[in-house]
């Protein structure tokens, strides 16, 4: 089976790869591009561990075909920090101890970034519903929600 050539950008870098027609973008990111920050928890769109953005739209990369990346701008967890400078969301996750095992964290941070872009002043309830696609089994979400609301407030203050 001939592979398909795809040109895309990932976190601003021009990237080319070859993929099978049925291959997911998650598999290409993790296995071919070695961007293992994006995690796989289910492969069926139910856990959000694989959250990325495609042209600024939040998606589960396990549900996106790799060929769909053609000509798009892909954003992953690896592109969230500015070199070694954590962004506010990452910093607040650390300050609030919003991660225990940390496997849900990359997906959550990408989702929170999308949330705060859409809605810079979410209520607790809005944050909970927006993040309902990101499962966390360790924290009970309490500290995650605190980190999100604190990050939102800090970002509003800085803007």
């Amino acid at each position: 089976m001939a592979k398909i050539h795809v040109s895309t950008t990932v976190n601003g870098d021009a990237v080319e790869f070859l993929c099978n027609p049925g291959e997911t973008l998650l598999d290409i990111l993790r296995n071919d591009l070695q961007l293992t920050g994006t995690k796989e928890g289910c492969g069926s769109g139910d856990c959000g561990a694989c959250s990325i953005t495609v042209d600024d739209r939040l998606v589960c990369s396990c549900l996106v075909l790799a060929v769909e990346a053609e000509g798009k701008a892909i954003g992953t967890i690896e592109g969230v920090a500015d070199k070694d400078q954590l962004n506010v969301i990452q910093q607040k996750f650390l300050e609030h101890a919003a991660l225990q095992c940390g496997i849900c964290t990359p997906g959550l941070i990408v989702s929170v970034q999308a949330l705060l872009k859409e809605n810079p002043e979410p209520t607790e309830e809005e944050a909970r519903y927006y993040l309902a696609g990101n499962l966390c089994r360790c924290t009970g979400y309490d500290k995650i929600i605190r980190a999100v609301l604190d990050a939102a407030e800090t970002m509003r203050g800085a803007a």
């Binding site: 993790r30 995690k39 940390g102 496997i103």
Partner: peptide
């Protein structure tokens, strides 16, 4: 862990 650099079982 917040930057995606930590390596888990599948990584």
């Amino acid at each position: 862990k917040v930057t995606g650099r930590a390596n888990y079982g599948a990584d």
